[in-house]
Amino acid sequence: MGKSVIIIGGGIAGMEAAARIAAMGKEVILLEKSDQLGGHLRKWDRLFPTRRKSDEVFEYLSNGLNDKVTIRLNIKINKIKKDDRHFFVILEDGESLKSDALLLTTGYDLFEAGKKEEYGYGIYDNVITSADLEAMFRNSAEIKTSGNQKPRRVGFVHCVGSRDEKAGHLYCSKVCCVTGVKQAIEIKEKQPDTEIFCFYMDLRMFDRYFEDLYYEAQQKWGIQFIRGRLSESCENPDHSILVKVEDTLTGRPLKMTVDLLVLLSGFVPSSDTNKLADMLGLLPGSDGFLTPVDEHFRTNETQVDGLFLAGTVKGPATIENTITDARSAAISIIKYLEK
């Protein structure tokens, strides 16, 4: 019998790792809890910074899945056991799947924006999340307020649920800054008369071409950046939103009305990751995400022999970095199987 690998989580990392491991001749079982592969990728319209359609990336990832990959959708895992050589993944209906190595690619959840009650998500109709806005782009819909009007002014709130001790997440989610800037540009392209303001603490445009996007947002589209964390928002009688912030660069409190307020929700460790980590005895890092044995040299291995990690299960990451990390995990797993 050839060696086999079970991958838990059919998002970007799971799909790419499955493709690479299968391409090197090993059997892969790819387990996914929902009824489709692709994870969060399927909710995006266009990706930053290239503005490529997310569907193209999904197609690329799907094409990698050859006949060595068995895809199992709608899977619920009951238990995971391990003896000295094999993993046994026991499903809810009692079926037991066996493999020589196990890869966790269970990703992240979006921070529940309603937890920041003072921003009014779920309370005021015109407060939405970046994911809600992306869904509008994906449906090629016009951007409209709850009252079915084109918004004259849109605000973006950075760091929602990130860099926030009150939300229990001190870390930076890395990609929300660039997501906000991308989405702000996209609103301007669709509806150029819209005024757009981003309320930020720091703009973390860390990756290649991100700064160019920021420059384009300012110079070409006149998108304005106001440094200060939103303290609160409230609803006006006409359902527009009044936001309050310190304009820290002038040292003055500032208020303004926006017709639509977009919250850039951050990453949190996925609830499934937490459950599986418990079953496997993995200890998360101080931020709650899982941690490899060594952050420089053994970036996909865990304390458990034969158990590997890839993608955003280890913390916020871009799609490019997730794909690269999945390839790296595939190499480590092949090396382990051939030992």
Partner: peptide, 13 residues
Amino acid sequence: GYSINPDRQIDYD
């Protein structure tokens, strides 16, 4: 000694 301070807030609207 009561007095009213002018509002320091920037009202962008």
